[in-house]
Design a protein around this nucleic acid. Structure first.
Lengths: 201, 201
DNA sequence: TTGACATCCTGAGGTTGCCTCAGGTTGAAT
DNA sequence: ATTCAACCTGAGGCAACCTCAGGATGTCAA
């Protein structure tokens, strides 16, 4: 039974842009095709389709991305890095609650870039043997920092833990993932959640 | 491309207990095996495994349940029927907010009977061409009734819609689904959501 | 009891997607 | 030009999905 972990040489495999020119070309092409495929078919898009869209044999895809999780990780790394970077910028702002709220909104969007992502991220959050774990931990830290600041300012209930914050975020993102174009409840979802975690005047 | 709908003869297929003795025997055996498999492997458990566990050829499984969705529907019908029935009993209770809360707790548990169920139910809620749609609609009505009563009593914010209630429920169930034995945030999730939707004294 | 037949069952086989690996190709460093 | 590590290819084994032609069987009416 495959344990649900994705280890290579005993540690999570993080795809690295290869050195040789043809390697880089293919790596980039695969990544681009993967982003497109994930967007339209979800995280369980056919890898053979992705390879063929990238104009590459299936073996080449597996060379660069030995597991589906590693491909997802590479396809979403940029977006999540931005999210972390944005958190740092927000920390400098005047109102810690506004900062937290803005970040949460942004996080929900990134978490639901394509169908199936939240599940992978939620898994990665607490499973170290996972390509996305590194990025997830970074996000966890960002969120925790913003939360702590808002709590220190007395704007968020002090008993809320970062884990709970991420449960709310993931829930909202999941709702957004499920949403049809005409019905996206994630904004309201977040609004209600915020109602639940902020302190009253 | 299979459209994500599950129609047979243009309408959602609801599995019916067959008439012949051998048919009924197999139907029941398949259902029992399916429940067990879904519980341990999630909604995407192998149908061939289920058939073989039931001591039946794969064709027999497909005869009774032409789609995976129809099998899931049959496997969860009882539980969801109970949920609807319980809602009616709760309506008679003294406190409409307590009733709503109790029902929500129960709903979350039922929605997350096995991994992947919430997604199917959320899909079915708004897609009529789906086996579970009938039961989902019934639940929607139950929830809406309880909500309306709690709102009429001034205990829940009046602007909350049933759809939004179900987004919260689904979110909580999804979090529960993801949870590992040591970390189930769904109870706290619901608590926070309730904090967000109840009116202040 | 015995047809007659609708219902039911079987499992081979076509299809797709996953993933591996032996063998061939090529970029780049010397 | 030579060398070789890095890279690429695609056949092929495996698992799961789903269908369908052919065979078996329970039921019911005579």
């Amino acid at each position: 039974m495959s344990s649900g972990r994705y280890l290579v040489d005993g540690k999570p495999y993080i795809a690295q842009r290869p050195k040789r020119a043809d390697g880089r070309r293919n790596y980039d092409a695969i990544l681009a095709a993967a982003r497109k495929a994930f967007e339209s078919a979800g995280a369980d898009a056919s890898l053979e389709d992705i390879a063929s869209q990238a104009g590459v044999a299936i073996g080449t895809l597996y060379r660069h991305f030995p597991t589906r999780a590693s491909l997802v990780e590479a396809a979403t790394r940029d977006g999540l890095e931005n999210l972390v970077a944005h958190a740092e910028r927000l920390t400098a702002g005047p109102d810690p609650l506004d900062a937290l709220i803005a970040w949460m909104r942004e996080a929900v969007v990134h978490f639901s870039t394509f169908r199936g992502l939240v599940g992978i991220l939620a898994q990665s959050m607490y499973d170290e043997g996972t390509p996305s774990h590194t990025m997830c931990s970074a996000m966890h830290r960002s969120g925790a920092d913003l939360l702590r600041a808002a709590q220190a300012a007395g704007r968020v209930r002090p008993d809320l833990t970062p884990d709970e914050l991420f449960d709310l975020l993931s829930g909202a993102a999941w709702v957004r993932e499920q949403a049809t174009p005409d019905r996206d409840g994630s904004a309201r979802f977040l609004e209600l959640a915020l109602e639940g975690i902020t302190t009253r005047d």
